[in-house]
Write a protein that binds this DNA or RNA. Sequence first.
DNA 1: TTCACAGAAGAAAACGTTTTACTTAATGTA
DNA 2: TACATTAAGTAAAACGTTTTCTTCTGTGAA
Lengths: 337, 337
Amino acid sequence: MVNIRDVAQEAGVSVSTVSKVVNKTGSISESTRKRVLKITERLDYHPNAFARGLVTHKVENIAFMWDRSSESPFSNPFYSLVLEGIEEELVKKGYNLLIAAHSSYDESSILPSFLPSRIVGGLILAGQFNPAFIKKLEDAEVPTVLVDFYLENTQFDSIETDNTQGAALAIDYLLKNGHRKIGCLVGNNEHPSVNKRLETVLKRLSNYGISKDDIFMGYGDVTPEGGFEAVRKILDFKPRPTALVASNDAMAIGAIRFLRGKKYRVPDDISIIGFDDIDLAQHTDPPLTTVRVDKVTMGRIAAKRLLEILKEKDPERCRVILSTTLIARDSVKKVKP
Amino acid sequence: MVNIRDVAQEAGVSVSTVSKVVNKTGSISESTRKRVLKITERLDYHPNAFARGLVTHKVENIAFMWDRSSESPFSNPFYSLVLEGIEEELVKKGYNLLIAAHSSYDESSILPSFLPSRIVGGLILAGQFNPAFIKKLEDAEVPTVLVDFYLENTQFDSIETDNTQGAALAIDYLLKNGHRKIGCLVGNNEHPSVNKRLETVLKRLSNYGISKDDIFMGYGDVTPEGGFEAVRKILDFKPRPTALVASNDAMAIGAIRFLRGKKYRVPDDISIIGFDDIDLAQHTDPPLTTVRVDKVTMGRIAAKRLLEILKEKDPERCRVILSTTLIARDSVKKVKP
DNA sequence: TTCACAGAAGAAAACGTTTTACTTAATGTA
DNA sequence: TACATTAAGTAAAACGTTTTCTTCTGTGAA
């Protein structure tokens, strides 16, 4: 493999000159610059990242990690898109993306090995993490941004969904369509998003004068199976709600499946609205009305922000809150209030 | 950050001794081994991967890449699981996983930068790639294994699906259930799997004495939309086939969607069988009968094989062909032949 | 004519490891 | 007793860069 010395020799200049040309630093005459460049090309010279990293202490590798609670991010319809956005942005800036899928990292407070070995320059965390793990990262001063998650007393940046605005969107849409008896499919999950959404739903309903007696709660995991469970409990109530709000699309989809099995027609017998707008939402029967979170943008911004942090010497902490949009499909029907 | 010299000093030994202890090489007395180990722990010493890589020329980073034709592997229900298997195996062996999602690499014959910069020690490629790109990899002698893909004249290992066996499984099942008029939803795709599956289907049907007139072909992309298109064309034929074989589950799912829209009942009016067994297959209505490819195992084996190759000095080329299993759900109905 | 200065280039140290070759002490063998 | 062998440990070179000083040369100002 050709190294910087080979190039220098071939060009009849010193090693430092080649380095300066390649890195566009120092002052180099146009003529030697051209000559060296031509030779790097001819010899197909590429700087050895290890040698470089050793002296600069700068690394162009970013790692993505997610919480243990959820399934693999590759199969997760939310994180997979976040990842797509991250990847896109990172590649554009010449960075490499590492994936640390192993779930054990947040159990213990042990850092994944690529961190102490200094092979990774920054971290993007998705979903909820063990506070002890976060603490460890802070102590080690690993540049980190949190995506779709927020932690009270951390110095790390976060890119979040505006769950308050999104939940308001959902409720307003249901009310506008005449629904006054609402069932909530709420996720058994300490993820701040779930809480925030529920909180907003309840507050909003009460603001609009909906009585507590007309609000029905069903709990389950934030998965299709959980939605299945949650809606089952709700259907026991009399009178039945005319519409359901789910903590996320996965639950909504499970609920639709349950309702179909029980021969309820959606939306004729009961309306339902989701949250997230995962890909599957447009393919359910009926297509799911939901609140869209722009997941790719979320990833893109997270990556962008991390690279900024890496550049700055003393970055300000900052929270980015992304707005949502209502995607009206066919799972909500207008009823007479 | 504490380095090997700090440890050596603290332990009152030379740097080389520490290195030997940490790497378990050379001969070291039990007492100093213990002492040094204790100190590495106390000082929280972790070898700098750059310094190490610089001298050993060994890297514990593996990159995963996939072809441009398919959507992001994160959202792809097949590759996402392959990736899961890869990740699992890699982490177990202390390797890091890089993701090179950018599609431009196989367009040109330029190598992704992490290769010439020697930051990555091996490659796992999923799906079909530009031969020029493969050639380039061979010239650069990048240790590589191909997953779910095979190339005629390459020296690279591959982990493949036994499409012949799988397609036979599907056809035999349809025949056993009395179907004699078969429609094929064929993917417009040069991926070897698609060809192999179709080829086997046709040969098998002819072996069983099914007339050409009873075989109907519909083409489309290997996506739900493609399945939609393909089945539409097939339904124009009279007499209608009683069963459909799809090139993959995505097409089968699209077909089911189309049939539902046209008020056909599956499997009462028409049966359908898929290939791959993606997650969604168990959630269609009716749940899809299909041929399962063990995607996680595929990834795991690919990773395992790559690590072996990295170890051996002069590895034999080898193709691994994974068998499939039939997953009988509810989309195929028994009919009188 | 002298001096200061800027531009261009190079020498050498530093980065943190591994590894080879070497030294020393201890042990066993003839 | 002398000699070979082995175990335990060390010194120093090497890996391929970047970067900090220097040096040198030419140019314009005083």
